[in-house]
Amino acid sequence: MTAIVQNLVTSGVFELDGGTWDVDNNVWIIGDDTEVIVLDAAHDADAIADVVGDRTVRAIVCTHAHNDHVNAAPELAQRTGAPILLHPADRVVWDLTHPERAPDGDLADGQRITVAGTDLTVLHTPGHAPGAICLHSPDLGVLFTGDTLFRGGPGATGRSYSDYPTIVKSIRERLFSLPDDTIVRTGHGEGTTIGAEKAASSGWPEA
């Protein structure tokens, strides 16, 4: 059985560099009737746990460690027993939110995470954050991009630990090589496709 993808939108506050912004986050739950992974445990552990139900959570995967993507991760991990996985380059960002609680495991470029018989491959895509990753599932034809790529272009790079030329390089070299019909599921807002964003990328500012 191929995994299915569920979307939960949670709301809260993004905090960085002394600023605060109200945000809605996409939480992605990928799996079947018995097991799932949770991608980006944002804001509301209760709401995420309600959607998961009695299914086993194999991992809580973080696309990056900005607080609005990880603030519910420790509580969800405590409730489910699932490990929190983060790319080690983002530990400096993680520690801004959870200095007292380390992630449980590292994500690495090329690593495969399997749930419900479906493989998802980790793609290290720095730029929005140094340890930002995307998850690609050829079987599902889906790419989960966190805040690396949105409908309309790259994620924000105007704050600490981010860099515009780096995110553009990540997108062009790692993501635009995927099939054009790949569905992009983002960290905020509506989805898109690789083909649509590739076609629009000629209008991006120079890196």
Results as ranks from 00 to 15, higher is better:
residue 97 T to H: 00
residue 167 I to R: 13
residue 133 I to Y: 02
residue 85 L to E: 05
residue 68 D to K: 08
residue 137 S to L: 09
residue 106 D to S: 10
residue 68 D to I: 04
residue 86 L to D: 09
residue 81 G to H: 11
residue 102 A to P: 08
residue 102 A to Q: 05
residue 145 T to W: 04
residue 88 P to F: 07
residue 107 L to W: 10
residue 74 P to Y: 02
residue 168 V to G: 01
residue 104 D to N: 14
residue 83 P to A: 00
residue 136 H to S: 03
residue 80 T to F: 05
residue 161 Y to N: 13
residue 69 H to C: 05
residue 146 G to T: 08
residue 160 S to L: 12
residue 116 A to G: 03
residue 130 P to G: 12
residue 165 P to C: 06
residue 94 W to G: 10
residue 112 R to K: 15
residue 164 Y to V: 02
residue 135 L to T: 02
residue 167 I to M: 13
residue 113 I to W: 06
residue 164 Y to G: 00
residue 130 P to H: 13
residue 114 T to I: 15
residue 78 Q to D: 15
residue 78 Q to T: 11
residue 144 F to W: 11
residue 124 H to Y: 03
residue 104 D to T: 09
residue 152 G to T: 04
residue 106 D to V: 04
residue 158 G to D: 12
residue 158 G to A: 09
residue 144 F to R: 10
residue 105 G to V: 05
residue 115 V to K: 06
residue 149 L to R: 11
residue 163 D to E: 11
residue 136 H to R: 00
residue 166 T to K: 07
residue 95 D to T: 13
residue 94 W to M: 11
residue 72 A to S: 14
residue 111 Q to D: 14
residue 128 H to M: 03
residue 83 P to N: 08
residue 83 P to V: 04
residue 116 A to S: 01
residue 78 Q to W: 09
residue 132 A to C: 07
residue 135 L to K: 00
